[in-house]
């Protein structure tokens, strides 16, 4: 019988997958706009000046593009991992559940740390508590998969 905790993890994975998908889409749009500004020297008409907006928040266009690129790349990697592990948790599969779940935990933690490190190197005030929040669920996943549910994902 499947422990309730695995069902809970599957539901939370679903919520995070949707959230990360929206984050990836918005990073993609942001990156597209930044490329447009970089190549043409201006953004779409009737839109506020991107460079001026970034300046007001303490960023540069190049930094914004690299940051959006990392966020987009990491999210595109972790959304499929979240969906695969969701199915794996529900079916209690070793590869789909345990391995994919662990891979998600590692990739999301590494990606989160990369973003924090990158921003911290440039201007440490750009790192905030919300970046730390992004590390909570991947680390919790690694903990519960390898300690609490280590004998449950074996099929």
């Amino acid at each position: 019988m499947r422990p309730g905790g695995l069902t809970t993890l599957a539901v939370i994975n679903g919520i995070f997958a949707l959230w990360k998908l929206f984050e990836a889409l918005s990073s993609g749009v942001a990156l597209g706009m930044a490329f447009m500004v970089k190549s043409q020297g201006k953004g779409p008409e009737n839109m506020p000046d991107l460079e001026e907006m970034l300046e007001q928040s303490g960023m540069t266009l190049d930094l914004y593009m690299i940051n959006s690129g990392i966020v987009l790349g990491v999210n595109l990697l972790i959304v499929p991992l979240l969906i695969c592990s969701l199915i794996g948790y529900l079916k209690q599969k070793r590869v789909l559940g345990k391995w994919m779940g662990n891979l998600y935990g590692l990739v999301a933690t590494a990606g989160g740390i990369a973003v924090i490190y990158f921003l911290y190197q440039h201007n440490n005030n750009l790192v905030n508590m919300f970046h730390v929040m992004g590390l909570v669920y991947p680390l919790l996943t690694l903990f519960v998969l390898n300690i609490s549910f280590r004998k449950d994902l074996v099929r």
Partner: peptide, 22 residues
């Protein structure tokens, strides 16, 4: 962390704006 962020983020954003561009 959200509550901590609500108090600490204004300071961080303020510093980031003041110290813009490094």
């Amino acid at each position: 962390l959200m509550m901590a962020g609500a108090i600490l983020t204004p300071i961080e954003m303020g510093k980031a704006v003041i110290g813009n561009g490094g």
